[in-house]
């Protein structure tokens, strides 16, 4: 290989970092994209390898290569876990800037706007990353700024804001997964929605024998950011006979998207609705888990399950 650097002026400064990544793969277990697809090519390590390949001219800057680097929810768990201290998402952002200059923009996980957009501009104000703007005709997203938090999707009254590649975190996908679990497990009674920072205390990529899976009382579904929780998603499990729903978000001031504040408001409103319907409001709860505290998360789940077991099913 010969080092020949051109075109990638943002990526260039990361050259030694890209070489110093020891490629241990410890980032795999933390990446929601990898966990969803199971392909190594969707894991953070593969993005680093791809960036290195582009910089060293081992691979061409193609749409497929760009799609990899534009696919990231910026949960930054890979960075926290990286044994080499590589600032992965900063590298991805710089790679995106270079690829944009080459006319490649994903598609990746960048949020887009459908033609049904009413141009109310609500999403511009809601976007925590200043990725959305109005060009006089349409709402446009700057892919190098968009962190795919999905808050624009939840605030859009016209349902026009969207992320095409959801990697299993889309509202309907989560609703379907919850329904499947509640219908197929005898003991099933609760859905736990976790933001990716909650780092769920479950198996990473393996599955248990059938005999053990049937006894499970709850399922943890990763919805990325608490800011993406909305009433339809939170209420859907109750339509499938769930006894309760637990939402796990970051502690106050820890959420990089401000999503936990939105989640708290929504859950408070739902609790009021439950009271009106004479349903115990404790059936829907929010807990705040510091990053990576698996033990606390499990304890909160156990407490919640014990509480809804005293209530029984909703009649």
């Amino acid at each position: 290989m010969n080092t020949e650097i051109m075109k990638f002026k943002h990526l260039e400064k990361w050259q030694s970092t890209l070489a110093n990544c020891i490629r241990c793969g410890y980032c795999f277990e933390h990446c929601p994209l990898y966990k969803h697809t199971g392909w190594e090519t969707d894991a953070p390590r593969a993005k680093i390898i791809t960036a290195f390949g582009l910089l060293s001219k081992e691979i061409e800057p193609t749409r497929a290569a760009a799609h990899k680097l534009f696919s990231c929810f910026y949960c930054k768990r890979c960075e926290a876990a990286c044994s080499s201290g590589v600032l992965l998402t900063e590298i991805f952002t710089d790679a995106k800037k270079d690829l944009l200059e080459l006319g490649l923009c994903g598609p990746g996980t960048t949020s887009t706007t459908r033609t049904s957009c009413a141009k109310c501009l609500v999403c511009l104000a809601a976007c925590p990353h200043e990725a959305r703007s109005f060009d006089g005709k349409n709402i446009v997203t700057d892919p190098s700024r968009c962190q795919a938090c999905g808050i624009c999707i939840e605030v859009c009254p016209a349902g026009a804001a969207t992320i095409e590649n959801t990697f299993g975190t889309g509202r309907n996908e989560l609703i379907d997964k919850a329904a499947d679990f509640l219908a197929s497990h005898k003991a099933a009674k609760a859905i736990v929605f976790a933001c990716n920072w909650s780092y769920f205390p479950e198996l990473q990529a393996s599955t248990l024998p059938e005999s053990e899976m049937t006894d499970k009382q709850y399922k943890i579904l990763v919805n990325m950011c608490g800011g993406r929780l909305e009433p339809q998603l939170l209420m859907a499990p109750f339509l499938n006979n769930a006894w309760g729903v637990l939402a796990a978000c970051c502690p106050d001031d820890d959420c990089q998207h401000g999503g936990n504040l939105r989640a708290r408001k929504i859950i408070a409103n739902l609790k009021n609705t439950f009271k009106t319907l004479e349903i115990d409001p404790d059936r829907i709860q929010m807990v705040q888990i510091p990053a990576g505290d698996k033990t606390l998360f499990q304890a909160e789940i156990d407490t919640f399950i014990a509480r809804i077991n005293t209530m029984g099913p909703i009649r």
Binding site: I22, R23, C24, G25, W39, E40, T41, R45, A46, I49, T50, G53, E58, I59, E60, T62, A64, A65, K68
Partner: peptide
């Protein structure tokens, strides 16, 4: 199955 060069490149490495 993956056959795109960028995918193959990523699968060409391990921790060595």
């Amino acid at each position: 199955i993956k056959t795109d060069p960028s995918d193959l490149y990523a699968y060409g490495s391990d921790a060595s």
